[in-house]
Design a protein around this nucleic acid. Structure first.
Length: 405
DNA sequence: CTTCCACGGGAACACTGGGGTG
DNA sequence: CACCCCAGTGTTCCCGTGGAAG
């Protein structure tokens, strides 16, 4: 009798080690990042000599190897510190998760064995706790703030306090590394914070197609079994990703999903066709995921745009039209509608997420609007929206709106 | 030059979920 | 226990502003 899994295991002829293609994997070797690695190591080496390293600001678009590089250098630095017996610790904080001053310091304080609740206290008390916690001994602490741009505005107090903390410490030294994919985010910062955080700057340029190929080849060697990749697969993945401002994460995803598709269809090789399918699948998944996690009100707004395009047979709508449809939807659902002001914000958010396209146009005598159009296929969005039980009722709103027209 | 509509910045507010103190 | 303090979030309110048609 065949075991249920027997076939499934035997089928795994494509991958040797799929983990290598995941974005969390940090390779031993980072191609085309020598310069940045050396630069970073050079600045941080001060920590090993008992000095305070300069604060560093790292720029680069998504998937240019910023996080991987920093994590790699961190690990090396910590290893070396351990060998030399100097107290040197690097703390990684993701600004998307800890996006306010309070949360950053509460997290930091906890690392230094202080008991601080995640909410409830005045912020300066949390800050003092952290300070007291670090200063208990002579050490060097480097705080890595990934996605610092998420901290600008809400949490820039954290940056301000971190940048001047050294003057209040007697034993320990603290410096920070900010990682940002928004090149303009320092504009939002206080002048003092800006100059302090940007003592050193390192730029991570996007990879071009050839460089992406190098990265992919190196990983593919470990990830795939021998000669399962058609020759054109890697160049094609690289080309796709190069169009997306040289995003290596995208390229690796593409390669992994291509392999998965090949495996599932029991193809002995990964082909160009698989890559094309993978590209479509990834994009479709992204849209579904984004729509699914949208707050209810945004879903209603998005749905209003869908309703309009079905009812009117055109593509672009003014914000007035969308808002009216939104109000109708709300009363249909028995909900209080939000104000127009708020809805313009929701529309902008949908725009940033890439679900819709919104451009401000001035119609002269007839004022000013945003022209709004859907920028993804309706078939991707509608089914997901109707999955939400609170929106189910809107499936048949069309009849009602015709009556009220 | 006026006029119009909605954009979008900023303040203010309500509410939530957690503190500490008497 | 009751009570007030605090950070954080989502919202409303108020309002100055852009820019081409008229």
């Amino acid at each position: 009798m065949d075991n249920l899994f027997e076939d499934l295991i035997k089928r795994g002829r494509i991958f040797a080690n799929k983990e290598v293609l995941r974005p969390t994997y940090i390779p031993e070797n980072l191609p085309h990042r020598k310069e940045q690695i050396n630069n970073l190591a050079d600045i941080l080496s001060a920590a090993l000599k008992g000095e305070t390293p300069s604060n560093i600001l790292i720029y680069g678009k998504t998937g240019t190897g910023k996080t991987a590089t920093v994590k790699y250098v961190s690990k090396e630095l910590e290893d070396m510190g351990r060998k030399m017996g100097s107290k040197c610790s690097l703390i990684y904080i993701n600004g998307e998760v800890f996006d306010t001053q309070y949360r950053v310091f509460a997290y930091l304080a906890r690392i230094f064995n202080k008991r601080v609740p995640m909410i409830g206290w005045p912020t300066d008390m949390v800050y003092s706790e952290f300070k007291a916690g670090v200063d208990t001994e002579n050490r060097c602490v480097i705080v890595i703030l990934d996605e610092v741009d998420k901290l600008a505005g809400k949490g820039d107090g954290a940056l301000y306090n971190l940048s001047r903390i050294n003057s209040e410490l007697n034993n320990a030294k603290v410096s920070m590394i900010g990682i940002s994919n928004d090149l303009t985010f320092t504009d939002l910062l206080d002048q003092r914070v800006r100059s302090s955080l940007g003592e050193e700057e390192i730029i991570f340029p996007p990879y071009n197609a050839e460089q992406l190929q190098d990265i992919l080849s190196e990983r593919a060697e470990i990830a795939f079994n021998e000669s399962v990749l058609e020759d054109s697969v890697i160049p094609l993945c690289a080309a796709f990703a190069a169009q997306e401002h040289g995003d290596a994460r995208r390229a690796l995803d593409l390669l992994r999903v291509s392999g998965e598709i090949a495996e599932r269809t029991e193809s002995p090789k990964v082909t160009e066709e698989h890559v094309r399918q993978a590209s479509e699948r990834i994009e479709a998944n992204r849209i579904v995921e984004v729509v699914k996690t949208l707050p209810l009100q945004s879903k209603i707004v998005l749905n209003s745009i869908l309703l309009l395009s079905r009812e009117r047979n055109k593509k672009r709508f003014s914000s007035g039209e969308v808002y009216n449809m939104y109000r109708r939807s709300c009363s249909f659902l028995g909900m209080e509608p939000l104000t127009q002001r708020r809805v313009t914000d929701l529309v902008s958010e949908l725009d940033i997420l890439g679900l819709i396209n919104a451009v401000i146009v001035s119609k002269g005598r007839y004022g000013r609007t945003k022209e709004i159009s859907l920028s993804v296929p309706e078939s991707c969005v509608l089914p997901v929206l109707l999955e939400d039980y609170k929106l189910k009722a809107l499936a048949n709103i069309k009849v009602k709106t015709q009556m009220t027209l």
